[in-house]
Computed example of a mutant assay.
Amino acid sequence: METLAEEYQDLSKKNSALRRYNKRLLFWMKILGLLFVLCLSYIIYIEYFPPFFGRWPELSQKYDNLQLEREALQEEIDSLNRVNSLLVELSPYYTGVFFEVQIGAFEHFDLEKYREGLAKLNIDYSGELDQYTLGKFRDLDLAKDFVRDIRRMGIKDAFIVAKIDGKRVTVKEAQEEARRLGEANS
């Protein structure tokens, strides 16, 4: 058996080794903790400010340029849509589904002599009555809003007329055709 002094010496060596190990472990834990704090600080910093290095300024500039280009293109698209809607409304040709607002149908009443001054007034001479309509909408909700406004203006008998390729149909048939065409285009 070992003597008490030998056992004490052995334990003392182990204690010294453990202290050195603990010091190294504590040192590396402090280093890792410092690196963690630095990384976390940098991540928080770059949320509010551009990073110190890398391609960030270049990418940020490209992003800003793309945003400006996207806004310009969106304005151009909106402008083209407005022009297209105007051209569709003014076009004498019908293709696809349209909704118009009929404001009257008369047997012995002819506004043909005013047609040039009434660019937006459509006159349908088919049938016994001359039918007068305003607007040419692809969107039924927009046509409903328009007929509501026309009625508020005093033309209480105004109603929506649906057409597919220029032929008069029911609103329900036009909605079904628009849905079918929408599915075919998607």
Rank of each mutant, 00 (worst) to 15 (best):
E71N: 10
L87D: 08
W28Y: 10
K163N: 11
E76H: 05
N185P: 09
E75V: 14
I123H: 07
L90R: 01
Q102I: 01
L90F: 13
V171L: 13
F98N: 04
L86H: 07
E107A: 14
R148N: 03
E173K: 07
M153P: 07
R115D: 06
T133I: 04
L134Q: 00
F137I: 11
D110E: 05
R115P: 00
Y48T: 13
Q131A: 12
Q61P: 08
A184W: 13
F98W: 12
C39W: 14
D165V: 09
R24H: 14
D124N: 07
F49Q: 13
A158W: 00
V171Y: 00
S126I: 08
L80K: 13
L80F: 15
R19C: 07
M1Q: 03
E116I: 10
I150A: 00
Y45T: 10
F36L: 07
K156D: 03
C39T: 15
K13I: 05
R20G: 13
Q175G: 04
I160E: 03
L59V: 07
L34S: 11
E177H: 03
K120M: 05
G154D: 00
P51L: 01
L34Y: 10
L86Y: 13
A174N: 02
K14T: 11
H108N: 14
E71F: 01
F52G: 12
Y93T: 05
R180E: 11
I43H: 09
S41D: 02
H108R: 14
E7M: 14
G166P: 02
L66N: 11
E76R: 11
E89D: 01
E47A: 12
S91C: 04
F99Q: 02
N81T: 07
I44M: 10
I164A: 06
D110W: 10
N185D: 15
Y45L: 06
F98Y: 09
C39E: 13
D124H: 03
Q74H: 12
G182M: 03
W28K: 15
R19T: 12
E69H: 06
E69N: 11
S91V: 02
L111Q: 04
P51V: 05
T170G: 09
S126Q: 11
V147S: 00
K23Y: 15
G96P: 07
G127K: 14
D130F: 08
F106P: 04
E107Y: 06
W56F: 09
E75P: 04
L4I: 11
W28L: 09
P51C: 08
F98P: 00
A184E: 14
R152H: 06
G127P: 02
E116T: 14
R179C: 04
Y63F: 12
R152P: 02
